[in-house]
């Protein structure tokens, strides 16, 4: 069975950004938490709630459908896999994602898309994020 990233307990989130820093550091070699495939942010400032913008692992991902070269292809369990060498940098995926969670880095050549690798989960001190087992797509 494949696993996908979920954010089942965001009410516990303290906004420490350790998850984003882990994704940026380990997946993208960047110090910048903006260069992460998930984004934690506040709704209504710190008096409001903390929310997670994550890839929801669509079974029929619009981003992959929009990709003209097939650089993005549906992943077992949902979401997509990126073959960077096939990406032409058109950003159609960014426009296609219904939740707006594909990020195009400034001056970047390929998108930042979630791999559902679970590194962020390992650096969450409060159990806000989790990896969930899901049946493989048919």
């Amino acid at each position: 069975m494949a696993k996908i990233l979920t954010a089942p307990a965001m009410s516990r989130c303290i906004g420490c950004y350790s998850c984003m820093l882990a994704c940026a550091r380990l997946n993208y070699g960047s110090y910048s938490p903006r260069h992460a495939a998930l984004q934690i942010r506040t709704q209504g400032g710190l008096q409001g709630r903390l929310v997670a913008d994550i890839c929801r692992a669509c079974r029929e991902p619009a981003c992959a459908e929009a990709c003209p070269t097939g650089a993005l292809s549906p992943r077992r369990g949902g979401g997509v896999t990126l073959r960077a060498e096939e990406c032409i940098g058109c950003q159609a995926c960014v426009r296609a994602c219904p939740l707006g969670v594909i990020y195009w880095p400034k001056n970047g050549r390929t998108p930042i898309v979630c791999r559902h690798c679970g590194l962020c989960v390992r650096y969450c001190p409060h159990g806000c994020l989790a990896m969930e087992e899901v049946p493989d797509a048919e």
């Binding site: 550091r25 380990l26 070699g29 960047s30 110090y31 910048s32 903006r34 260069h35 880095p105 400034k106 001056n107 970047g108």
Partner: peptide
């Protein structure tokens, strides 16, 4: 506000 990328020269040691 800031969103610039700052590459990590030595990911292994830093991590």
């Amino acid at each position: 506000s800031g969103d610039c990328d700052i590459p990590i020269p030595n990911v292994k040691e830093y991590n």
